[in-house]
């Protein structure tokens, strides 16, 4: 137990150090506004990918409606700050609560479905959320919700990202998390062992949705606008791609996936005509070579780094 605490503390220190380095680079202007924007975007995408991984990767429920929850968070957060003039932190909490509540309400009936049927139901729900927003003129309808102040800074995005990773990592390492994983591995066996599968599925879904809501409110408070076009099913696919590319069931994998794809997308902006062609080819090639995702279901640790640098070859149970 003590050792675990010590490691947590170490990684927390690492995070603070990383924050200090990036913030320093921003301050001395080495990272210009373009990269600053993309770093914030990476943080938001990591929150989305890690939270979807909890649903898809750890609990094994195939959900492709994450953009819907993100939209709820984005709009509700904006209503809180713009219409009700509440502080940003209240907006974030409200966004998380609303998205989580919606996830709970939606999850309760739909999580009875399995596999592709669940996928299509969540896809449909995501679209229903988006179409509903499109028809509410209070939040701008098709023109989008304009005039949102830019409250999201690198600091907000970074520490909320750390919070997300920390909460989800600890959840997975708890008995609840092991119950979730048992649902993924074999639902019938889990049920026979006395795991309340519905409860854990709904729990994972609710928590995942709540974090997507946080990401949404960060998103709308960074780009001044919340617009239905940002939350189409293509966004859900993007998040899913990050999760699968990084490795289902690996938190560090999701982080890598989000980092890599956001980065590729940013770099490719210079080649507008070829952008999506290159992006799609990269996706195909990466999947062909690493179908289990870049990290499979393993986590990055120092040991893997040592091996990568060409060192220790023994004792790597990770390599199947």
């Amino acid at each position: 137990m003590n050792a675990v605490r010590k490691r947590d503390l170490l990684s927390l220190l690492g995070c603070v150090a990383l924050y200090a380095v990036i913030q320093g680079l921003i301050m001395v202007d080495i990272l210009g506004p373009f990269w600053q924007l993309n770093i914030v975007l990476i943080c938001i995408n990591i929150i989305l990918a890690v939270s979807l991984n909890l649903i898809n990767g750890f609990t094994g429920q195939f959900s492709i409606g994450h953009a819907g929850f993100m939209a709820v968070g984005a709009y509700l957060g904006a209503v809180m700050t713009v219409k009700l003039h509440l502080p940003f932190i209240v907006a974030i909490i409200a966004a998380a609560a609303a998205a989580g509540l919606l996830g709970f309400i939606i999850g309760l009936p739909t999580l009875r479905l399995s596999g592709d049927y669940l996928a299509i139901a969540t896809l449909g729900l995501g679209e229903i959320i988006r179409i509903t927003i499109l028809n509410i003129s209070y939040v701008g309808g098709a023109s989008g919700f304009m005039g949102i102040p830019r409250y999201t800074t690198f600091t907000w995005a970074f520490f909320l990202m750390i919070l997300t990773i920390f909460v989800i990592k600890n959840l997975i390492n708890s008995s609840h998390g092991r119950a979730c994983i048992s649902v993924r591995e074999n639902e019938i066996a889990a049920e026979a062992m006395g795991v309340d599968t519905t409860r854990y599925k709904v729990m994972a879904f609710t928590i995942g949705a709540a974090f997507a809501g946080i990401a949404g409110s960060l998103f709308s408070h960074y780009f001044y606008i919340a617009h239905p076009a940002s939350f189409t099913f293509m966004r859900s696919f993007d998040i899913l791609t990050m999760v699968v590319l990084g490795g289902l069931g690996s938190i560090t994998g999701s982080i890598t996936g989000a980092l890599l794809l956001t980065f590729i997308s940013a770099v490719l902006a210079s080649y507008p005509e070829w952008r999506m062609v290159i992006y799609s080819l990269m996706l195909i090639v990466l999947m062909l070579y690493r179908p289990q995702g870049l990290l499979g279901n393993h986590e990055i640790s120092l040991a893997i780094f040592k091996r990568l640098m060409g060192g220790v070859k023994s004792g790597n149970a990770q390599n199947k």
């Binding site: 993309n38 975007l41 902006a269």
Partner: peptide, 14 residues
């Protein structure tokens, strides 16, 4: 997409 538009604007200018 609106967010990408902000991103593209940032890139063009900076």
């Amino acid at each position: 997409e609106p967010a990408e538009a902000a991103n593209a604007m940032q890139k063009l200018i900076t």
